[in-house]
Design a protein around this nucleic acid. Structure first.
Lengths: 206, 206, 206, 206
DNA sequence: CATGAATGAGACTTCATTCAT
DNA sequence: GATGAATGAAGTCTCATTCAT
């Protein structure tokens, strides 16, 4: 009931530890793939017992969702910085880079759709609040892109298509672009080059 | 030692059974999701013992890879039919539909990247021959698209970009397009509409 | 060392809190079943930390034992009120109702035998004092029944069997009666009807 | 499809092993109590891996249900032998003994009601066929008692109460009787004596 | 060839209990 | 006194894979 200063501290500490755990989980995700992201592994790497994991996350799904949200927040923040740019085309290119970074860091392993479109794929135990938070961030991201596309120099660039219809076009493009240019560990397995492709795309778009 | 007619028959039979098993696996994949694709489930549905599965596939991974190859073959065949089309733009739209179909049927569950870029994520035991076959089909697919883009009416359409550079642009676009328009079970969760988006994209491209 | 007035107060307060906790535990027991009666759940519902539970109960077993004792006390009190009744047969019927109430409230979930006959089944860490208290109440309950059976109108009712031998007969009957008439959630699964059965039993007895 | 002789053998063997496992489980139940009846413990004692337990039982609940059914079958068989008896009162006494034996062996630990009245108490995953079998045996048992009570010498014994209403009275009596005379490990903790009580009850009943 | 019983590691999760603060 | 974070053992269950028959 009483919200003592101590409670606040505790709350803060808990939040920090959640961050730390998510960081560890992300490292495992990146180093060994999604299958290696088990409660046990994460706990061990984070230096706690697997039982303790459940103090910070209701279950494994929540941990994953947390990772996604955290990554999206970073992405959002990165994208925000692009807004200052005078040249919207430049802004969009930068956004593409940020999305690439996000994708390689996280999106490559877990698709955002798994959470928003839950269907049956095992995500049923999620904290509704967190799901809401997720959808919020998503909306804001889309709004950001739309805003960029509505800026004067960009307006009408895409053959006069209204900005709200440009957004999905752009997103699809960037999403696909990033995906097919994911760098393989051995260069000869990497199909396409991101920078070249991005150049070509912007060339076509305007 | 001797390559009798019998050996050939056996070989052929084996191949047929592999097909049959893969079909079953695919049905399970689509009906119940990736998690339900277990060796046991597939074996039971196919009417053989789980032990026998290992006569046809070295591993579970190989089964999955086989599924991918089989699906890519279908995609390839579907795409081939688009070539006849007089109008390259129409051809490309049709290709997009075929890709969508492939994606919903298979690509949605298992990303091609998991196999080509193996890295770590658990695919280490693959038959190199099959991996080679996979890459072959992939190349052919890309060649097909490129061919379409090189046809006279299309030539120079994308702001004069040479066809080999148009291919990835197009692929990225379609890949992303399909991905972000995946229909959710509840309509209100489906973010964008495939047909609308496809319209807009083609409008912009030419 | 010195038994100050403060110590007494503390003692009293501790006792009160024990009561409160047991009440909470009972509510959980009835609402969600025995499995939900965990130290954590009880603590949370009672508004204290799980660690603090151990200030009031040596361990979980003791909490359960405490619940039993408290319920038996209520049963005893309820039964006491039956004594006033002029008609012993009526008194006995009322007792049966009280026992039924006790059974549905508590006995159904935790059998008294688990505590008195400890043997093995996990109850080894009990406070001997409490076990003694439990046995005391039990004795008093039996004495009560015997007293009722010794009252003039009842005397000799059960074919002249001496009261002390009637007690177990009666108890067995009531215990069994209550048990086999426990109401199932769906009426068609409830085997027998308590009231009817009670009628029949009394009809036979006298 | 084809029901070969081999399949039959296998079926039989599987059945036998189920029996064996149930036996082991029962031993554990009796020796260490219900809480000790874990899949792990049973598997270890039976000499298999815990994973293998799931070849024989869909889940833990099914194992328990199986134990119950098996025990009820024995009880039923035992009770059948009582029918020959010329004297129905003797038959009933013998039934009581058999029930006692069943109760000490099994009923004491797991109440039949837990299965038939499932409510929420954790039994939700049961094989409906087995539940049906359970209810069948139960019905037959009750029918048996009723038949005994309908035999001429018994007819009208219980103050003319019709046999179908005598059944629950009797069952309640025996159930309660057995329950309150359960022998404690230390004699001084055993409240009442079964034989004495049974004598008294029959004395009263007729 | 084919079978399916068996394995054993490992997944998630819960909970009574302890202990530094 | 009180707290609640942390533990660690134990629970149920699944699954790819092997191997005697």
């Amino acid at each position: 009931m009483v919200n003592t200063i101590f409670d606040q501290l505790r709350q803060q500490e808990k939040e920090n530890r959640r961050f730390a755990i998510v960081d560890v989980a992300e490292k495992i995700l990146h180093d060994k793939g999604l299958e290696a992201v088990t409660i046990r592994n994460v706990a061990k790497m984070a230096g706690l017992s697997s039982g303790s994991m459940y103090m910070y996350f209701k279950n494994k799904e929540e941990l994953l969702l947390c990772m996604l949200v955290q990554n999206l927040k970073v992405l959002k923040k990165d994208m925000d910085t692009c807004m200052d740019n005078q040249n919207p085309m430049e802004a969009i290119k930068k956004m593409a880079y940020h999305y690439k970074s996000y994708f390689i860091r996280f999106g490559k392993y877990i698709n955002i759709l798994s959470f928003t479109i839950r269907e049956d794929s095992g995500f049923n135990n999620l904290n509704p609040e967190m799901v809401k938070e997720l959808k919020d961030i998503l909306s804001k991201l889309l709004a950001l892109v739309q805003e960029t596309l509505s800026a004067p120099p960009m307006k009408g660039a895409l053959k006069g298509l209204p900005p709200e219809r440009c957004v999905p076009v752009l997103w699809a493009l960037i999403q696909g672009l990033v995906q097919i240019t994911i760098p393989a560990p051995t260069p000869e397995d990497t199909f396409f080059d991101f920078d070249q492709l991005l150049e070509d795309v912007t060339h076509i778009l305007i």
